[in-house]
Amino acid sequence: MNKRAWHCLRLEVPAACAEDVSAWAYELGSCGLQAEEAGERTQLSAYFAAEPMCDLAGVRRELTHRLAALGLALPIGTECVEEQDWEAEWRRFFAPVWATGRIVVHPSWIPVELAEGQIAVRIDPKMAFGTGGHESTQLCLQALERCLRPGMRCLDLGTGSGILSIAAALLGARPVLAVDIDEQAVANARENLAHNRISSEQVEVRLGGVEAVAEGPFDLVLANIQSHVLRPLLAPLRGSLAADGRVAFSGLLTREEAAFCRWVTEAKLEVDTVLKKEAWICVVARNSGGQFD
């Protein structure tokens, strides 16, 4: 079987600009990014799907244009990375991540010690998004911890590695439906569920998007997806919520807050709270009912 290939753009930027450039890469469709700090400089490696899924030349042009606006004329290197190379390279950078005081995400080769009430989500690096290292995933985990109550019905839209579904199940959600339009993500999510000893009765993983979800209503929906993908899904997601259900929208940049909250309101959802970390936000909205607590 042919190995799946990915494009990697590499560039060195001033450390003060690294967060902005990383956010741009995700905004332009990056499925993974690593950063190596060296004093006042940061080496960034941004991974993108191969053509035709990604217009790499267009991504390079846009990054060059945005860097020029900051007065930076930086070379952007390009290489093709096979899937097995990705996994080996990421191992060098992985460490346990405490998304909250209760939830830790860790790779299998680094064990963690837990206190009473804490949960560990084991995720090994694959090409599916969601290893706990990115702010948008951490914010969604924070929203999950704050909103979820045992026995709630949960939908994980764009599950990626399955990290949010695993955390939801470990926190007592029943049942959980996880969907993704990418076949490899679906396979990776099922693999991670098995590693975490989560049964298919607890979490069902399904290929597809909103159209694949006939069940409902859901008490909590998790959607860690870019804003341009989320916008047309707002009305369908509202229709999938229970009367007092909530939805956590992550994968959003701080500069998108005003526009996205307006879209949420137009979809007849009510913004409960906005969680923030670095350049990223998670908008928690509700259908109706009690206050966020």
Results as ranks from 00 to 15, higher is better:
residue 52 P to V: 07
residue 256 E to K: 03
residue 24 W to C: 11
residue 10 R to S: 14
residue 116 E to S: 15
residue 234 L to T: 12
residue 15 A to Y: 01
residue 123 I to C: 03
residue 196 N to D: 07
residue 104 V to N: 01
residue 241 L to D: 00
residue 171 L to Q: 15
residue 184 Q to G: 04
residue 52 P to H: 07
residue 167 A to P: 03
residue 72 L to F: 04
residue 108 S to E: 01
residue 280 W to Y: 10
residue 46 A to H: 00
residue 110 I to E: 12
residue 146 R to I: 11
residue 21 V to Y: 06
residue 128 A to P: 02
residue 249 F to D: 05
residue 231 R to A: 11
residue 198 I to T: 06
residue 261 C to G: 07
residue 190 R to F: 04
residue 175 P to K: 15
residue 202 Q to Y: 01
residue 138 Q to N: 05
residue 179 V to I: 05
residue 10 R to C: 02
residue 270 E to L: 13
residue 68 A to F: 06
residue 83 E to N: 06
residue 248 A to G: 13
residue 90 W to F: 14
residue 281 I to E: 06
residue 60 R to T: 07
residue 201 E to W: 05
residue 143 A to E: 05
residue 213 V to Q: 07
residue 230 L to D: 05
residue 202 Q to T: 08
residue 147 C to W: 02
residue 10 R to G: 09
residue 90 W to C: 09
residue 188 N to M: 04
residue 28 L to A: 08
residue 288 S to Q: 14
residue 286 R to P: 07
residue 240 S to H: 11
residue 201 E to R: 13
residue 285 A to H: 09
residue 199 S to D: 14
residue 68 A to I: 06
residue 230 L to Y: 06
residue 183 E to S: 15
residue 115 A to S: 11
residue 46 A to R: 00
residue 51 E to N: 02
residue 11 L to M: 15
residue 127 M to H: 01
residue 236 P to H: 12
residue 104 V to G: 03
residue 230 L to V: 10
residue 107 P to H: 14
residue 291 Q to K: 14
residue 267 A to N: 11
residue 175 P to D: 11
residue 29 G to R: 09
residue 132 G to T: 03
residue 133 G to H: 13
residue 253 L to F: 09
